[in-house]
Write a protein that binds this DNA or RNA. Sequence first.
RNA 1: GCCCCGGUAGCUCAGCUCGGUUAGAGCGCCGCCUUGGUAAGGCGGAGGCCGCGGGUUCGAAUCCCGCCCGGGGCUCCA
Length: 644
Amino acid sequence: MVKLRLPDGRELEAKIGESILEQIPPESGLVAKVDGRLVDLTWIVREGVGTIEVLNFNSPEGRETYWHTSSHILAQAVKRLFPDAKLGIGPAIEEGFFYDFDLGGRSFSPEDLERIEGEMRSIVEENLPVVREEMEREEAIKLFRSMGEVYKVELLEEMDEDVVSVYRQGEFVDLCRGPHLPYTGYVKALKVLHASSAYWRGDERNPVMQRVYGISFPTEEELKRYLKMREEARKRDHRIVGPQLDLFSMPSELIGPGLVIWHPKGARIRRVIEDFLVRVHLKWGYELVYSPHIAYTNLWRTSGHLSYYRDFMYVFEKEGIEHAVKPMNCPFHILVYKSKRRSYRELPMRLFELGTVYRYERSGVLHGLLRARGFTQDDAHIFTTPEKLEEEIFRVIELDEYLMRSFGFEEFKVEISTWDPRHPEEYMGSEEDWNRAQYALEEALRKKGYEYEVMEGEAAFYGPKIDVKLVDSIGREWQLSTIQLDFNLPKRFNVTYVDADGNEKTVIMIHRALLGSIERFFGILLEHYAGNFPLWLAPVQVRILPVAERHLDRAREVLDRLLSAGIRADLDDARGTLGYRIRESELEKIPILLVIGDREVESGKVAVRRKGKGNLGSMDLDVFLREFTEEFLPPDLRGGSSTF
RNA sequence: GCCCCGGUAGCUCAGCUCGGUUAGAGCGCCGCCUUGGUAAGGCGGAGGCCGCGGGUUCGAAUCCCGCCCGGGGCUCCA
């Protein structure tokens, strides 16, 4: 007896020898899972299999199938409109699907995309059955060769399988592992999103394919909601919001691509962040250092970076000596350490710098603040003994968590990159070094109670590392913190300490950047909050709005009180209607507005308006200050003795 | 770096297909009026190397070529 479980949890007894599709309510599922394997709904139920689980759009497999069939519909539409197009591949992706086509040198215009979308709708309308067919690989090669599908032939020729599957819908046939929806009519709402180009199999030596992206859903409402969310994400794009709020700009045509100028308001936020970082690091036992922006290229020859990093460095010559703008801070921190002989008693030594570096990133990868050519790392290098490594890692993770929570991020994902034990020759350091270090990393995470994923073979040749990703307010993941162990630089620079036994030993070095880059972090923060920074970060925390010019005197008194209390406040000039000025301030995303009119002048109170909450009513200025004292302050200064 | 698309006022965009009056709109900015109570008061005005350079033409924002910059991807990210 075989059970059949529907997406709503109901269980039926499956009839042997009939397809799943015939036995379930119409359109109640998309695909099924049998013994861990995904099958088409047209699959014929056999004796002796486990429970058949029918999946719908709410499951990842259901969505993937939905989008995969959608991509076939896309390909079919393109073949109808552009019979000469050669098919590449067309998978479902995290959100939606794409299909690659070789158009023989031309590309799709926006009008083409509209026609394609229209043709896709026709194919859905035709409700074509999607039929799986298995055949010998050789037979498939013949089939696709006869159709002129050279890319399919190439894929087939590289496959190991003797038998492959193809899927047919109407006149269209595609090489595909499946599974698929039973009919094209299962796709209810679809949208062709955009086209771009991509290389066949991601290799720029290969021909260029035209890639068309699309999305589809079981209902129009879901499609609409998706498109609206896309629009939301686009609207909070830091490259739009940043200049809009007058925080920064990147006038690349004047100063070059990938470089940022910080406007007063952005600079205020940045300064608050940097001051916070410096205070916290000092509290956590780091020492603050500074290092120059340029040095002889020889320095990076010693570190070994120059040979394979040179193309990414800004190199120039003065009086016959080659200099470079620093692409990293590590060698300088090593030189601080090496300025004298060090004892084990001094370790761990933690050197912290807000170090601005420049890297000549390839133009195609630049992306606003998220990938710039000049950026400032919250960079530290920790020199430690092997004995203290684990505790030190633990402390770094603890600091990292404190910082992330302070900035309003609650969800983290942690990965450890380890070496590939099958190829120890590709790595620097002994097996003992690696095992001990990797154990220390894992042990520190376990003690912290973090779940983590081990990425075997992902480590750099010079040491294992921990990566921390965080999840933002709209569910996107960002790789931020890196804690990287280094067995290489200490050897190259001969970085040692004298141990308790009087012997000179090589230190273990930890590179760590927790926010990563201030620019990038700022961009992520801006999108995370959609410009609505929490009170402690807001560039203008309070704006005072006099109702009319006759209230300006009192408004100035209030301003003085706020400024001397250390609050970032400004004063509106009382021109124009109050409604208009409130609207302006709301658009500037100022968190608190204090309205002062006749009533307030008379009573000595202020009318408080909080962004997102509206009018909170009037209160005494002292009460207001007391109420918000904590919130105005950076997290590390709250709950202390500071008073207004 | 490679492929595709784009660049018009401070911002968002129309005009370009098919070359031809003085290149437009909304917002913003400036001025005047309005003295206003929690998201847009009224009237007027200024503002353009139509990305840069070259070519075709009697004539180029518009057509062609090169470059710069941006966007979407591919790739890379020790």
